[in-house]
């Protein structure tokens, strides 16, 4: 028995130099093998199309017909009279500035409320339902709810005798009406993330803070929220990116109108490419949006050092 044990021990304590070198080499090969599928996928489906989109943006590239070099022409045309891009950019920024903060405040407060409820699991399922419902279907239903004599208008008439304006047909209310739907649709996702994060808050820290006299709002602001900052950072980044890429809800509900009040950059890209048949002219706003999202996300990543606490 002793001899066997010694042999085993001897095998388990190898020579410090040679075996490590050999192991490192074999790991590299395996790592390369495992990385290859995702690397190939990234190259074929993300890197290559991105490079192609950048190249396309410098050409007059009709859906069918002759392709010619345009230089910066497609970018200049984005700001020419008659272009919808400036309005689309402003609308996208307004969408993002409205959707991200409202979504975060609402979902975080609801998550705190749900975490204290006896029916927390039921609420999580209910709030998550809109996320898994097809966007086009919900957008169509909301359109019917909003339209004159629809649910909202009829309710207001029967309760207060007020006839609401056509919410999606009026340029002063259309964007806000769409924002409400976007927040409703995306509400459950962030709420679930925050709920999970709240459930994982370390009980010992919460108990210790109570002993130190932190209760109620003080504990919420000084202890719980700082502990939740990694989740808040993740949710804010993902929500911001999806808000910048807003398309389905405004496209189905308003098709960008009335006027240009709900045109977004992605809608502008889609309409230029697939309704206008100009792929080069559509690539230019896509590249601008790509750079914009990249810059804002980088700023968020750099800024997180100041407010996100990963250590507990």
């Amino acid at each position: 028995m002793t001899a066997i044990s010694n042999k085993t021990v001897q095998r388990r304590i190898p020579d410090p130099a040679a075996p490590i070198k050999r192991k490192k080499k074999s790991d590299s090969r395996a790592a390369l093998g495992f990385l290859t599928p995702s690397a190939v996928g990234m190259t074929v489906f993300i890197l290559f199309p991105t490079i192609l989109a950048v190249a396309t943006s410098f050409f007059n590239w009709p859906t069918f017909g002759d392709i010619s070099f345009a230089g910066l022409g497609n970018y200049r045309n984005l700001f020419a009279p008659g272009s919808q891009f400036p309005a689309a950019l402003v609308n996208t920024l307004v969408f993002t500035l409205l959707v991200v903060p409202i979504n975060l405040v609402l979902t975080l407060s609801t998550a705190f409320w749900v975490s204290t409820s006896r029916f927390s699991r039921l609420y999580r399922v209910l709030f998550f339902l809109p996320v898994v419902t097809p966007t086009v279907a919900t957008a169509v239903i909301w359109k019917l709810i909003y339209q004159p004599n629809g649910l909202v208008d009829s309710t207001m008439q029967s309760l207060f005798g007020i006839h609401l304006p056509n919410l999606l047909g009026d340029s002063s209310t259309a964007l806000l009406a769409v924002v409400v739907v976007i927040i409703w649709q995306g509400f459950g996702y962030n709420m679930l993330i925050f709920s999970a994060a709240i459930d994982q808050l370390p009980q010992d820290i919460l108990d210790a803070s109570k002993l130190d006299g932190a209760h109620g709002l003080t504990q919420l602001l000084r202890i719980k929220l700082p502990l939740l900052t990694p989740a808040i950072f993740f949710a804010s980044t993902v929500t911001m990116i999806s808000a910048f890429q807003m398309f389905s809800e405004p496209f189905v509900m308003t098709a960008g109108g009335p006027g240009t009040s709900t045109v977004t950059v992605v809608m502008n890209v889609y309409q230029t490419a697939f309704q206008g048949g100009e792929l080069g002219a559509a690539a230019a706003p896509a590249i601008i949006l790509f750079v914009l999202i990249l810059v804002v996300t980088m700023i968020q990543w750099l800024g997180q050092k100041k407010w996100v606490h990963y250590d507990q």
Binding site: N166, A255, G257, G259, T260, T272, Q275, G276, G277
Partner: peptide, 22 residues
């Protein structure tokens, strides 16, 4: 020869005229 793009513009802009917004 860009009729689909024109019809999209018509839908967006004419809504404004029908509601008296423009």
């Amino acid at each position: 020869n860009n009729w689909d793009a024109v019809t999209k513009l018509m839908a967006q802009q004419f809504q404004q005229a029908y509601t008296g917004k423009s």
